[in-house]
Amino acid sequence: MNDGGRKARAPVSMKARDNPFSSDRILSIRYRLHDLTWEQLMRRLAGMDYRGALVGAQGSGKTTLLEDLEPALRARGFQTKWFRLHQSMPRFSSASLQTFFSTIERDDIIAFDGAEQLNRLAWEQFKIKSRKAAGLIITTHRPGWLPTFLECVTRPDLLEEIVRALTPGGAQEILPPTAELFLRHNGNLRNALRELYDFYAARPG
C-alpha cells in the first residue's frame, strides 16, 4: 500500500493565509488619489463646509476614501462619528438614530457610508438632524444626495497598480490580464480582486 506516496505528490491548494488577495491585504491598500493631492482634497471639502458626497459605483473605493479622510479631519480638529448602512442592513431603528444623534457634538463630522440605502424622507430627516454636526460626508452610488465632493472612478491602470502592490515580483505574469479583469467586473475593483483571490486559491500553495 503506497497511499502515503500518492498523498505526498498531490498538489495542495494555496492556504488562505498565504493568498496575496486575502481581504486584510486588500484592505491594506488605501485610496489612491488621481490628479489631486490630499491637501487639495481637504481644501475642497472645507470649501463645501464639510458637507458633500463621495459618489461612485460599487467597488470604486468610496468607503476606503471615507475611512482615509478620518485622520485628515482629526488633524483639523474634528472627530468622526460613523454611521453605516448596507444591503444586508439597509435601515436603522428610530431608537438607534436617536442614540446616534445624542452623541453628536459641534466639532463632529458624520461619516455616513451607504446613504443611498435610505428613502428620500428618511434622508431628509437625517440631513436635518445632522445640522448640529460640523459636517456630513456620505457615500452614494448616484449623485444628488449632497453636492458631490469627489467622484470615485476606477481605471484599468489603477487595478494594475493594486495588483502589483499585492503580488510578489514577477507573479503578475501568471495572472489574468488586468484590462480583461477590469472589463469583466465593470470596473468593480473589489470584485476583480476577489476573482484573483479565487485564482490563487486554486493554485498549488
Binding site: 488562505a16 493568498n19 486575502s22 481581504s23 486584510d24 486559491a201
Partner: peptide, 8 residues
C-alpha cells in the same frame, strides 16, 4: 485572527 476571502 482569521485571514482569507471574507471579513477578518
Amino acid at each position: 485572527f482569521t485571514r482569507g476571502k471574507g471579513t477578518s
